[in-house]
Amino acid sequence: MINSFNKAIYSSLSVAMLFFISCQYDNNSTVYYDVTPFSDSITATTSFSGYALKDTVTLSAEDSIPYQITISSGELVSAVFRLDTLTLTSENNYIQIDTIFTVGETYPLTLSLHVSTQTGSLADIKGLEGINFEDSTMLYVKFVEAE
């Protein structure tokens, strides 16, 4: 009886383990939408009037830096400039620098850019299609003593 009892316990535990692991609800259904893929590649060019990329701009007071972003197609969703970690305001193609940082120091001016393909696809909505990058260094800004 004891042997039978042990057998029963071990069998029961084994079976219980098996069905516990195997029987979770799952469903493979999905809905598929036939979205037309984007055929061309998108390019974006950023330029700063009077400066080449990664040049150092010297500032002694609050100032603005003119810029131009040209995209081959799609739609510009966002363009965010940061000086070190400070997010800057940009209007009418001018980056406003309203804060003077430590004199004598040089800080990177970075751009986060998102250009959508406008296909409406999942990857486009999630920002994984088109152009999407964060904090790419465009220029360097050095603060100097005002004369």
Binding site: T30, V31, V35, P37, S121, L122, L128, E129
Partner: peptide, 8 residues
């Protein structure tokens, strides 16, 4: 669920 050519 949602899926298209670009992902699911």
């Amino acid at each position: 669920a949602y899926s298209d050519y670009s992902g699911k």
